[in-house]
Nucleic acid binder design. Sequence first.
DNA 1: CCCTGATTCGC
DNA 2: GCGAATCAGG
Length: 190
Amino acid sequence: MSWTEERVETLKKMWGEGQSASQIAKELGGVTRNAVIGKVHRLGLSNRAGSGGGAKAPAKEKPVKAEAAPKPKAEVKQPKPEPATVSANPPPTPISARKQIIPAGQPLPPQPSANEISPEALASVREVEKKAKKISLMELTERTCKWPIGDPATEEFWFCGLGVQQGKPYCEAHVGVAFQPMSSRRDRKR
DNA sequence: CCCTGATTCGC
DNA sequence: GCGAATCAGG
């Protein structure tokens, strides 16, 4: 693949939108994120600025590493289709993580169906919460359970972080409580 | 471990 | 000009 007008334009657009290099690479196809970053630099838009009044890159240090370095480890390619990114689609805050205190300015999204959970599922959540990995926001990936535990308004807040099922945002147990079969929790006057 | 962009340098 | 390898960091 080569950098046609069209592809470059897509690159510019997406980069301008703050998309990550890897996302752009996936969109374009046929290129790696490295290629994208390389192109970005050559185009001179390394900084997401674009214009402005003389934003100049401060002189960078040049360590001058001794080359001719051997390659102790080989790079491994991992073809894995990941259509979505975490930041784009925050999971609905489930049962836990809601005391009554809402951080100002960031009202939690409505929780249409966070009531009536099957006792079994609830039990497993408790169980899982005990062995949750307590990972931070940064640790969240495509394959870590994104179930919030604790109160976001306090320090007592982390994410489950256990391994997730293929495609699912949560681990086994949390998927169970997150995606209730429409049945089993029918009528229930509130 | 996963990811991010930045840089270098042989092609 | 291109991009893999590598670096540096969250």
